[in-house]
Nucleic acid binder design. Structure first.
Length: 593
DNA sequence: GCCGTTTTCGGCCCGACTGTTTTCAGTCG
């Protein structure tokens, strides 16, 4: 084969660029929209959407999958999509996307972000009125030109103008679960108190405890829907009723432009409706396909046999039982392997619960940048039923956060001893959140750290290092035998700061080797490490702690969000150290390798 | 565009609500 020698001497190696999962997912969604603008068949469109969901939800990085040609092993990704994703990841560009984009003006895609405006309407308005941006749509509405297009009227114009104003305010940003949950819970209580309500629950991404949510779903059962729908429509804080029918009501709250959807059904349909409106969509599609194989049609209105007869389902677990699989808790319903595991009977049965947690990790007081005294924190922890609380102030280098000098620390121990003697039922543990310096060294001498019961090491400054430097920094910190817990390991702040670049697989591997516990930080804007990394950590045998990162006593409740994140990462009680009693917790932390 | 212990072709989840129509298309979840 002489032709073989015509190949260049240096192999044509493509170097993977920094195209991340989120970018790939966004590109696939853009293609989906562009195809819809073209009027392409819904099935092809959906293939792109499903692939986008699949990529966005991947626990691992894309680079290795592309390099090893394993993209096609992912469900919903065949040859055509694998080729496009590979091209995008290895070259940073995608020819197909550019071809599609060239057919439409650039502002057209953004128009589909407006509420109640989808690709069909955008295509019509572009064709009939040459509208290609939000500004042009706004003008067309004001000038009454939209109502002249078939299928549109005066009401459409008014709604679009409203939608444009809303879009400009909110910019489509998803809200933190921690901000939304209190509001959602208060509305749920109001719905529960409405006349005739039998059962009511939150649904959607709030019930799945997603880290951010776009809206709130409430599902209720009652013999009469009307009074229940009214209870939401007339609730305090409602800015506008967006729609109200016989079984459904949507409102927008003044606070944060948050949308709330309520469905009310007869109680016999409650379980299947709750399941339907909890999602995720991807999880449901899997279940419905499994149902079809068994001659069962699964919808929000129940489970029906092919002959139309209804199968009674009173609890969500009944749906899974009909499909011969284990019950899947809401937090796991993402089609990330839970369907396969549940069918095989291999879903973890002892997922972490809030009740399993005996002590709260990571709390600050007025000694550094917290708002409450040590005693107030202790009493608040006890009131929540916690047996211990680790006091972990900032160390000296964290000047901006009132970091403690070693002398301060020793005086604090005296106060902790006094409180532990005086307050029964809860114990304060002496700890520190010591800064991991630029070199990876810790901010206190080992001789000081050795005297503490709990040592969390965290990065607070110099976030701008590159991936190599940052990875080395964290690995070096974990090599110090005094470091027991790696605090908020990626440094992200949801919606406001990207995680610093770091090779998490190496960090988790080292944590497992050295016996360093990794923090699952429950502060709503952190949730660090995130669920995907929790799952990876659990697989690699890394020990975890769930923390509240409390800077005031109310923050102790952040533990619930850390537990939610751990559950979404399939963590079990046995994976989490602060499910142990105080003495055993402290002993376990010292078991370093 | 994906997928297949019936299939490499012909399927692909399903219903509520709105605004427009006068029986339905588009959007959303």
């Amino acid at each position: 084969m002489p032709g073989h020698y015509l190949l260049p001497v240096t192999p044509d190696v493509t170097i993977p660029t920094a195209v991340d999962k989120a970018t790939v997912a966004q590109v696939l969604r853009d293609i989906s929209l562009l195809l819809q603008l073209q009027g392409e068949s819904g099935f092809r469109v959906r293939a792109y959407d499903m692939a986008a969901d699949r990529i966005a939800g991947l626990p691992q990085e894309l680079g290795p999958l592309v390099a090893e040609g394993r993209l096609e092993s992912l469900p919903g990704i065949g040859r055509a999509l694998a080729e496009k994703i590979s091209e995008l990841v290895s070259t940073g560009r995608l020819g197909y996307l550019e071809e599609l984009r060239a057919q439409f003006p650039p502002g057209l895609l953004e128009l589909t972000q407006l509420p109640d405006v989808g690709p069909k309407k955008v295509a019509t308005l572009w064709r009939e009125l040459q509208v290609s941006s939000i500004e042009e749509l706004e003008r067309a509405c004001r000038e009454g030109r939209v109502r002249q297009v078939r299928g549109f009227g005066a009401k459409s114009e008014a709604k679009m103008l409203e939608g444009i104003a809303l879009y400009r305010r909110a910019r489509g940003e998803r809200k933190l679960l921690g901000e939304v949950l209190p509001v959602a819970t208060a509305l749920l209580e109001r719905v529960k108190a409405a006349p005739g309500v039998v059962r009511a629950s939150l649904g959607g991404s709030v019930r799945r405890q997603a880290e951010t949510v776009a809206d709130v779903d409430i599902i209720a059962s009652a013999p009469e829907a009307e009074p229940v729908l009214d209870a939401l429509a007339n609730a305090p804080g409602v800015a506008a009723v967006l729609g109200k029918g016989e079984s459904k009501c949507s409102v927008r709250l003044e606070a944060g432009d948050l949308q709330v959807d309520l469905r009310v059904l007869p109680d016999e349909d409650f379980a299947t409706a709750l399941h339907h409106f909890t999602g995720s969509k991807a999880h449901h599609i899997r279940l419905r396909n499994l149902g079809q194989e068994r001659g069962l049609k699964i919808s929000e209105w129940g489970v029906h046999r092919d002959d139309g007869t209804k199968v009674p389902v009173t609890e969500e677990s009944g749906i899974y039982a009909l499909l011969d699989m284990q019950y899947v808790p809401p937090e796991l319903r993402e089609d990330n392997g839970e369907v396969e595991a549940a069918r095989a009977g291999q879903l973890p049965q002892d997922l972490l619960t809030l009740e399993d947690v005996q002590g709260a990790v990571h709390a600050h007081s007025t000694w550094s940048d917290g708002r409450n005294s040590l005693e107030e924190m202790a009493l608040a922890a006890r009131a929540l039923g916690l047996k211990y609380l680790t006091i972990t102030e900032h160390s000296e280098a964290a000047i901006y956060a009132g970091g403690l000098k070693v002398d301060d620390l020793k005086r604090q121990w005296e106060e902790i001893d006094r409180i532990n003697a005086a307050v029964s039922g809860v114990r304060l543990l002496k700890g520190i959140e010591v800064d991991i310096l630029e070199s990876g060294a810790l901010d206190y001498a080992d001789s000081v750290l050795e005297q503490l019961e709990v040592v969390i090491g965290s990065i607070h400054v110099r976030h701008g290092m590159d991936e190599d430097q940052m990875t080395r920094r964290l690995l070096a910190a974990m090599d110090n035998p005094c470091l027991q817990i790696l605090g908020h390991p990626t440094g992200r702040l949801i919606n406001s700061r990207e995680p610093y670049p770091v090779r998490m697989d190496e960090v988790l591997e080292r944590a497992a080797e050295r016996g360093v516990a990794v923090e699952v930080n429950g502060k709503p804007a952190r949730l660090d490490i995130k669920a995907e990394y929790v799952r990876q950590a659990v697989k690699q045998g890394v020990r975890l702690v769930v923390s509240c990162d409390a800077h005031q006593k109310e923050d102790l409740r952040n533990l619930a969000f850390a537990v939610a994140t751990a559950r979404r990462g399939w963590a079990r009680k046995g994976d989490v150290l602060n499910t142990l009693p105080a003495d055993r917790f402290v002993t376990a932390l010292r078991e370093r390798r």
